[in-house]
Amino acid sequence: MTARTARRPKSNKLPKFLTTFLQDKLAIIAPPLIAIAVFMVIWQLLCPPGSKGLPGPLQVLGETWDPYIIYPLFDNGGTDKGLGLQIFASLQRVGIGFSLASLAGIGLGILIGTNKVIYRALDPLFQVLRTIPPLAWLPISLAAFQQSNPSAIFVIFITSIWPIIINTTVGVQQIPQDYRNVAKVLRLSRQKYFLKILIPAAVPYIFTGLRIGIGLSWLAIIAAEMLVGGVGIGFFIWDAYNNSLLSQIILALVYVGVVGFLLDRIVSFAASKVVAEEQK
């Protein structure tokens, strides 16, 4: 019964959605779509309706259609909110934590990259700290902040800052000798050197750091939210697990994957706009 209701919207909507792209981008769009379709079929075959264990795709769709798919923004108070709001709450934490990490990471990275002594002093420390798994920071941050939200943000911050620092440092250190020589011969002021040479030259590296950083923060937020609770996609998954709502978990995973992918794309799109042609 549930399977039948789930099939209808799929067969009605997807062809329409496809036709808009079919004309010009068929060659690019078709292979992944076919792959997804094949995957779905295999999944459906492996988990037929009524089997114990994991639900099949049709079952997932049926169980989550109302309200989770069609009403992403419903709000029943407490933690009972639509997936859109859940994601938004997580993104907010990531946004704050990642922004702080970017600011601090780029700043520290430049400082370390330009000063050999500081580099020698701090680099070994960072190399050790960056290997600490994100969740290992959680207890200490809970102890320090006493509140769940700042703790989660801190975990984001501490997770994403290392790749940003390290890449920025490398970027600053890798400024081609030629550009430095130009600056030396022209006796550029520090400020001008910073703005016209150091930053532009390090930008590709900085963006590499940011991309890795955003990926890591999205990884960390899910785990952190599972533990600290409150509104957020991580806790949503955890909550669904506790209530044995496997379909909700699977749907949430799809959301998490898509959002992570989009975050990565946004950062790399920004990079492509900022980095000059010759540096790529």
Partner: peptide, 26 residues
């Protein structure tokens, strides 16, 4: 180093993020 002894480097050493005008203007 100083601008009284300007160097034309082997590999030009222009800043790729600046235009021709900006490179000279810098």
């Amino acid at each position: 180093p100083g601008p009284d002894r300007m160097v034309v480097f082997q590999n030009y050493s222009l800043l790729p993020w600046l235009t021709v005008y900006e490179n000279i203007a810098l």
